[in-house]
């Protein structure tokens, strides 16, 4: 298969139609999207609402299937990867179980997999996301930012092959969101897990990713594939560099071409 040799995530010629009453062929949500993510690479899928970027991520996770085309993760079907606990996921809805404490929420992937709970690993992750002291707290007693820290820790706990993030900080206020991006960058630099991040925030994509894939909507297509040149680890000052601003401006333009015609 073209271009998928050794790729951690390989989406090839993926088309997705959603059935719609009265429309014979349904609505075309994704039109022949091809995307490879290399092992250890952090790729951001950037696009406006409704461009199908979340559908692409859900397909990668095996939660949706393409109408035509193939999705492979490490050369396997997504369902097989899920079966061997190869995914770590964090979505905008933190999806923490309200009846479990922080510690038990992070331990959930162990228990679901029927593996012995590695208490040392959980303690280390709680420290990594800076929630030491909150191990016994329930999600309802945490702030939005803290819940997403737990969400990220849970996604990382089984040392997944692939990390899938769908607007994990989308529901947070701007200040907390920027702070969480700094934290995610720090955490990611320590693990270097292959990551696919879906976002519509240009700054977030530029700050976090090695590569940005820009999508356009209706139907969803890949419009640009852009390498991010900033060296890692990236200090927060990166966001004040001239090159950062230049790329930010051009990406904003790419996202809404019709507004600048």
């Amino acid at each position: 298969m073209a271009g998928s040799g050794g790729a951690a995530i390989a989406l090839h010629d993926v088309t997705r139609r959603f059935p719609l009453k009265g429309v014979p062929d349904g609505v075309l949500a994704l039109d022949r999207v091809t995307l490879d993510v290399r092992p250890g690479e952090f790729v951001a899928l950037l696009g406006p609402s409704g461009c199908g970027k979340s559908t692409l991520l859900r397909m990668t996770a095996g939660l949706d299937a393409p109408s035509t085309g193939t999705v492979r993760v490490g050369g396997n079907e997504p369902a097989a990867v899920a079966g061997r606990q190869g995914f770590g996921v964090a979505f905008q809805d933190h999806a923490l179980l309200p009846w479990l404490t922080v510690r038990d929420n992070i331990a959930l992937p162990f228990r679901v997999a029927g593996k012995p709970v590695n208490a040392a690993r959980i303690a280390a992750l709680i420290a990594l996301v800076k929630l030491t002291g909150f191990e016994g707290a329930f999600p309802r007693n945490l702030s939005g930012g803290m819940r997403q820290r737990v969400n990220i820790a849970r996604a990382l706990v089984l040392e997944p092959e692939v990390l899938l993030l769908d607007e994990p900080f989308g529901a947070l206020d701007a200040v907390t969101r920027r702070h969480m991006n700094l934290e995610l960058q720090r955490i990611w630099t320590e693990t270097r897990t292959t990551t696919l991040l879906v976002t519509h925030a240009v700054e977030e994509a530029l700050f976090l990713a090695d590569r940005i894939v820009v999508m356009t909507g209706r139907p969803g297509r890949v419009a640009q594939d852009l390498a991010v040149p900033f060296a890692r680890p990236r200090p927060v000052e990166v966001m004040r560099e001239e090159e950062f601003h230049r790329m930010q401006d051009s990406l904003v333009l790419a996202l809404e071409p019709e507004a600048h015609d």
Binding site: R58, A61, G62, L63, A82, G83, R84, Q85, G86, F87, V89, F91, D93, A95, L97, W99, L108, P109, R111, V112, A113, G114, L164
Partner: peptide, 26 residues
């Protein structure tokens, strides 16, 4: 159980019995 929780269990590769015990029942 919410759709987000069911998605989570599916991506975590949960068997039906684990989902019943850890999600649907609670």
């Amino acid at each position: 159980s919410s759709a987000a929780h069911r998605d989570l269990f599916q991506v975590l590769g949960s068997r039906p019995s684990a989902r019943l015990l850890r999600l649907d029942l609670p």
